[in-house]
Each structure stands twice: as structure tokens, then as C-alpha cells.
Design a protein around this nucleic acid. Sequence first.
DNA 1: CCCCAGTCCTGCGGGC
DNA 2: TGCCCGCAGGACTGGG
Length: 281
Amino acid sequence: MPELPEVETMRRGIAAAAGSMILQARLIPGPQKPIRVWPNIARLRRRCVRQRIEAVTRFGKRVVLELANKHRLVFEPRMTGLILVAHPPSETHLRFELQLEGGEFPRIQYWDQRGLGSVSCYSPEEFAEHLGPRQLGPDALQLSSDELQSRLGASRRPIKVALLDQRAVAGIGNLYASEILHVARIAPQQPCCTLTKRQWQRLHEAKEAVLNEAILYEGSTLSDGTYRNALNKAGGYQNHHRVYARAGQPCPACHRSSVVRIVQAQRSTFYCPRCQKPPRG
DNA sequence: CCCCAGTCCTGCGGGC
DNA sequence: TGCCCGCAGGACTGGG
């Protein structure tokens, strides 16, 4: 499930498209319902075809192609979307394609098994409306300890649930929320408003360490095998997970307790009850 | 504002 | 062996 490290890996995989020209954009027909395209495929095509790609950026869990006409082409992979330059895992779930001219690769393909993702092309005004500060908080890697505390600190929600709120912080999903809290030694159930300054600092440091380490390993490919980089190669960070999907296994930090799975806001949370204790009192 | 449940969607694995 | 069901969870919606 692509979160910040996986989406950043996708971005790096197509970063060399900067400087290329988009020659064509098309939905690839298939047996399934087409993926969501905004505003629609005809208007998207008119907005991006014959435009040069000036930069390939990322915001939260989205990859953004910045075009010469100041429009932005946005890929949102959600659960199973992949952004590829070659070797799609199957022909059946290829959904969308950009043909390019003048770069290292002739096309960018969007593949999505479950089809929950989307492709959008926004004018600057539309971009501000759809992906502005009302919808998305600052990117998780562009956020200081103080800003993290000021954005989440008043909430009574459990810290694990709050970290998933993209309006507060963009880029952290279910997997990395558990991993970050384990490194920070903070209980996932602890209400945000009870975290101390010291804990916010630890959370910030753990967020930087875990996300950057995961980027280094090119993200996590879980046992379902879905996530791949732009060349359809699996990531490696799943071999370094401390708690995620490891219920019943010994905690790699204390070696004295087992990892426990609980459910918060209908999602699995994994943590070590010995290392991640709520503060006393 | 906060919080929760339902929805989308497909593939996989458990149970019978 | 096959079928049904539940589960995975990112983002959105509607209701309390």
C-alpha cells in the first residue's frame, strides 16, 4: 500500500521524465471499469498533450508532474496503484498511459489492480482547491517537531489514528504509523493531548528516521506483493519492519514481549506493550 | 469541530 | 474441489 516512502520511490523512478514532452495521454481499455480521471479524459488530454514536463514532485501520497502550462498532472495510487516506465506486472490491470518524447523512456504507465487510484490534471486554481491546505497538511518530511505538536497536540484522538489524518500531516499511512510509534516508544492508544514535549520530539525524530530509512530501501512490498518501483522491482523495507504484521513475534527492541495487534478506527495497529507504555498517572 | 461506519475495489486464504 | 465470506486499507461521504 503506497505511503510516503513508496510514492517517493515511484517519483524517483520517473524523475528523468523532467524535460520530456507529453505526446499522448490515454485510458487503456480493459474488462474493468476505467479508473477515475479528473476532470475527464478528453479535457485531461487537452490540458497536458504537447506540454513539456518541467519537474516531477511528490506531495504526501501523490506524484505530481509539473507541466510547462503550469497545470499539474497528479497520480494518486491509493491501495494498489503503480507508476511504471517498463515491465507492468500484468497487461490486465494497465489503466492509463502517457506517451513521451525526448527522454530516457518512451512512456509512463499507470497500473492498478483494484482500481481505487486516480489520475487528475489541475489548473493552478483547481490544484489549490483540491490539494490545498484545507485538504492536505504539510508533507510528513517537511514538518518540524513543533509544527507536528501544534497540528495534532489539541486532539483527543489516539495518536495512531491522528497520524493517519492527511489533513493534519500528509504521507503517513497505516504501516508507517505503527513503525514510527514503535521507534518513538509511544503507545498507539495515547491521546494526542497527553503527549509531552519530549514525546513530540521523539515522534518527530522517529518519523524522520523511519521514513528516510524506508526510502533508502525503496519502500515495503508486503506478502501480497503488490507494491513495485517504476521498473517493477520489489522494495526491501519489509525485511526491516519492527512491528507491522508481526503479531506474536518477539519485539525486536526489548526481546521480552511479543508484538500485539489491536484495531483502531477499523484498521490494524501493531505495537509492543512493553516498549510502548502510556505515561503513568 | 470530532468521530465512526459504510463505500469503492480485487485477490487471497480460511472454513466448510 | 469449489464456493462463500472476511479481510487488507487510502480516501471520501454521510450521519450523529
